[in-house]
Design a protein around this nucleic acid. Structure first.
Length: 260
DNA sequence: ATGTCGTAACGTTTACGA
C-alpha cells in the first residue's frame, strides 16, 4: 500500500498538477494539506473519476486537509481533539483496510508558528501538546497507524541546507524540536530516517530567492509510524523532481510503501 | 529591489499567511 503526503498549497491553483502526479505515482492513499478551500468547492470529481474516495476537512482561504483513497475510507473524523474552540482545519483521520492489515491514517497540517515568540507560536506549541495526546492514544491501540503531513518542524540541523538561516525560526527553535521529539519518543518511527541516513534530502523550498535552484531546502514533511506500522515499512521516498514542473507547490510529496 | 505565491475582497490593488 503506497501512502503519500503532499502539501499542495491551494487546490484551486494545483488540481491539474496534482492529477498529473497522481496518474504517474499511482498512490493508493494521499493525505493533502493546505487545500485552502471549503469542502463544497473541493474538485472531488477530478479524483473520483480516477478511482479515489474523497474526504475533506476544509475552511475558507487557509489551511484545510483532505484524504484521497482508492480503498474505502472508514471511521472518518475531522479536527484535532482537545480544543473545542479551535476552528482551524488541520487534522483528519480515517481507516483503510488493506490485504493484510487495517491502517489508521492521520493527515495533519501543523501550525507554522511564526513569528516566534508570539501568539502564533503559542498556538503551535499548544497544538503540538494536543497532538502528543492524540499520538499517545494511537499508540495504546497497538495497531498499524501513521501520522503524515506538513509538520512545520525541521527536526535537526542536518534537515536544512542552511541551518543557520532557521536558527530563530518557529520551524527550528529548540522548543519546537523538543516538542517534536516528545511525540516521536512516545514510540514512533520516523519513516524517512528509517530508510535513509543521508543528509541533503528536503521536502520544501521557498519560492523566494531561487531556493529551489540552489537546493536551499528544508525537510519538514514527515511520516511517523506506530511500531505495528513500522513493522510493515518497505520504503519511504521524496518525489522531489516534480518541483521542476510549471506552477509547482513549494512542497513535494513524501510517501511510504507498507506491506498492508 | 527586501529575487514569491495563493487566496479573498468594497478587486484593475491590497492584505494576509506562508
Amino acid at each position: 500500500m503506497k501512502i503519500a503526503s503532499f502539501n499542495i498549497n491551494g487546490i484551486k491553483a494545483r488540481h491539474a498538477a496534482l492529477c498529473d502526479w497522481l496518474d504517474e505515482a499511482q498512490p493508493d492513499v494521499v493525505l493533502l494539506q493546505e487545500i485552502k478551500s471549503v469542502d463544497e468547492n473541493f474538485p472531488r470529481e477530478l479524483f473520483e473519476e480516477r478511482g479515489y474516495n474523497v474526504e475533506t476537512h476544509g475552511q475558507k482561504s487557509f489551511n484545510g486537509v483532505a484524504i484521497l483513497s482508492k480503498l474505502p475510507l472508514e471511521d472518518v473524523t475531522r479536527g484535532l481533539p482537545g480544543d473545542a474552540e479551535d476552528e482551524q482545519a488541520r487534522w483528519i483521520e480515517a481507516t483503510v483496510v488493506g490485504d493484510t492489515a487495517a491502517v489508521r491514517l492521520c493527515g495533519l497540517y501543523l501550525p507554522n508558528g511564526n513569528p516566534a515568540p508570539g501568539p502564533k507560536y503559542d498556538y503551535k506549541l499548544a497544538w503540538m501538546e494536543r497532538m502528543k495526546a492524540r499520538a499517545s492514544d494511537l499508540l495504546s491501540r497497538e495497531e498499524p497507524a501513521l501520522m503524515a503531513g506538513d509538520y512545520n518542524v525541521i527536526p535537526l540541523d542536518e534537515d536544512a541546507a542552511r541551518p543557520e538561516a532557521w536558527r530563530e525560526d518557529a520551524l527550528a527553535l529548540p522548543q519546537t524540536r523538543r516538542a517534536y521529539r516528545e511525540i516521536v519518543n512516545l514510540g514512533f518511527t520516523e519513516a524517512f530516517r528509517a530508510c535513509t541516513q543521508d543528509t541533503g534530502h528536503y521536502t520544501f523550498w521557498d519560492y523566494q530567492r531561487g531556493a529551489w535552484d540552489r537546493n536551499d531546502g528544508i525537510r519538514i514533511d514527515h511520516v511517523l509510524l506506530t511500531p505495528q506500522a513500522a513493522d510493515l515499512l518497505r520504503d519511504c521516498r521524496i518525489d522531489k523532481d516534480i518541483r521542476n514542473r510549471p506552477k509547482p507547490s513549494d512542497h513535494v510529496p513524501i510517501w511510504v510503501e507498507l506491506d498492508a
